[in-house]
Design a protein around this nucleic acid. Structure first.
Lengths: 361, 361
DNA sequence: CTGAAAGCGCTTACAG
DNA sequence: CTGAAAGCGCTTACAG
């Protein structure tokens, strides 16, 4: 019945005899005791709070990130604070500074396109907060990054369209300021080149990731003297617009026109026909980001086991350090090792909006 | 150059001579000093943290709430922690208890349909956390509520369709488990009754708020021997499905069929044709919720000014208490007074998907 | 392996 | 109107 020992048990520190540990655990369970996060934050240097920064755009994407982040935070005893930034706002700096100094988050997750805002990045780097960028454009030196291979995914989707027999494949480009747009366009072009298909500039319509520009872009492509038999849009919102454009003029999808999207947004499997698309592992990206942040902010483990530099079992490895290194924490799912850049797997999701081209008349 | 005085200045407490106050303010500005939230939380009873509880469903709605909540929190020096609950999950109780005991939020905002989960409500009430429910179904005694008048809004939209000349108006019903659905249906029926129109059960299709059921529901209505000339869907997702259903069979919207939605979701003004709908003040509801929570958790002001029971200027009203009551805080927008139930205004948004019926053949 | 001391950065009563 | 004291609930070094 001590008080310091309770702290040790709760933090899974070594040097507590099993029997005592048991007794404490039992009491904790019985009383439903939980440490007060704020007292703990004050005594430690860290707060067990992570922040998610985003703009109003791309609601579905942000919600996907939140799902992954809150789930992983919960498993690790962390909490997620969200902050919606005003895109053009000039007091963004003020907002951020306030959040950082008042709340002292252990790390920040930056959703696109916030992650490409150099002012924000600069401010955060200067403040010294660990950050992980989700699918950023440029490669930022000291910051963590999680992304998927947009170019490769677009290349694969285009190739699958080619494999179905399509030869004229239209493309609806995304907003050029969003980092993913040029990468996806490059993948489309690469697939064409790999299969010896001409890169007709007329087959690429400019969009900005909204439903409306998908509709307009598809109209533009279908108005061509030699229209495409398939249209690949850089995201699902535009793909849905493309479907409507086709249906509006009486074309069947996929009978008269195949349409493919990108993202696998929640709506993609609810519209008619269900959209063939690329599954982007949004929630998983947020989970990976949380892992990276938590492993950074965790105090360096005793002994040299996790630093990886020294050979295992070297002179300074005590029994205690080995124990703690082997246990890997109290029943919590194992954390991914800290990395500066993780690329997660995507997948092609073939549903009902794509098929082979109808025999030409 | 004291230290206690700084605390007084930062908290806008009375009893500091203007000159001193100025001097402290200047230093604070110069050093960029901000109080550590965790230290403050520990010393006070409250954390300046609010929580938002939601399910995975209705991404756009939750994002709207977050927008309003984060903005208002920022203005009031609060922070928003989000928690996505597993709908069917049986460790929801565990999740909540952990959040409450560890983080000690000053209050919780419950998005629909979490706000109608009796288990959650019971747990929270028992824990004694102030809660505000967004558009809940039943009327929960001690909890705050913010909503809009769904029935009246639906009645107005239906009436506007009638005013355009429609006599057979189809309705696509929402998910009956969501509290808003029966209220909107009631409004539709009321408008019909008020204008002496028959309530044909065949004109009401069952949906569940998803795009897909809007499409199917509209198909069902248009297959009727005597199909409607207008369809009112209980939300925008279903209305978009209805538009596609019409277009798929070559009907023009609004030429051959008027379609109205509900919510004014971000997509509503991006689809083609742009949707006539009801604007639901989602962000404003979250702002109101934050105000209610903050005014609750604020410590009762000195003097009796804000309690409203005693006459102003009564015996105990000192100069100090009058000052603090009149100032209303340091440059922060005025807070709405604490209320147990606030109903916010909606608005009809007439866009391009509704028009008068084409002269019948 | 275990505990008594001091401190994290603020605030609440209490004296002047 | 202003400050010196004690404490919020935990944890970090330090002694046993």
């Amino acid at each position: 019945v001590s008080m310091k020992t309770v702290s040790r048990v709760l933090n899974a520190e070594p040097n507590v005899v099993p029997a005592l540990r048991e007794r404490v655990m039992a009491s904790v369970a019985a009383l439903g005791y939980r440490p007060n996060l704020h007292a703990r934050s004050l005594a430690r240097a860290r707060s067990s709070i992570l922040g998610l920064l985003y703009y109003a755009s791309s609601a579905a994407f942000v919600m996907g990130l939140q799902r992954g982040a809150t789930a992983r935070c919960r498993a690790l005893g962390y909490h997620l604070v969200v902050e919606q930034l005003d895109d053009g706002g000039d007091h963004v700096a003020e907002q951020l500074r306030h959040m950082l100094t008042a709340l002292r988050p252990d790390g920040l997750i930056l959703a696109p396109p916030v992650c490409d805002n150099t002012e924000v990045i600069g401010l955060l780097a200067q403040a010294g907060v660990p950050c992980v960028l989700i699918s950023p454009g440029g490669d930022s030196p000291a910051l963590g990054r999680v992304s998927m291979d947009d170019a490769r995914a677009a290349q694969e989707m285009t190739a699958s369209l080619i494999a179905l027999g399509h030869r004229r494949i239209g493309y609806i480009h995304g907003h050029p300021a969003q980092a993913a747009a040029p990468r996806r366009l490059a993948g489309y072009r690469q697939a064409l080149a790999e299969h010896g298909l001409p890169a007709d500039p007329a087959l690429v319509a400019q969009g900005d990731f909204t439903f409306r520009t998908g509709l307009d872009g598809c109209d533009q492509l279908l108005d061509l003297a030699d229209p495409p038999t398939a249209v690949f849009a850089a995201n699902d919102d535009m793909a849905m617009g493309a479907v409507v454009a086709a249906q509006r003029r009486g074309w069947q999808v996929p009978g008269d026109l195949s349409v493919a999207g990108f993202d696998d947004s929640p709506l993609a499997s609810l519209v008619w026909p269900q959209l063939s698309t690329v599954r982007q592992p949004v929630a998983e990206m947020a989970e990976a980001a949380v892992d990276m942040l938590v492993s950074r902010s965790a105090r360096p483990p005793a002994g040299g086991a996790a630093t990886g530099g020294e050979a295992a079992g070297a002179s300074h490895a005590t029994a205690a350090s080995l124990t703690s290194a082997a246990s890997g924490g109290p029943g919590v799912p194992p954390m991914a090792p800290p990395t500066t850049h993780r690329v997660l797997d995507h997948a092609l999701v073939v549903r009902a909006s794509t098929a082979g081209p109808r025999a030409a008349g």
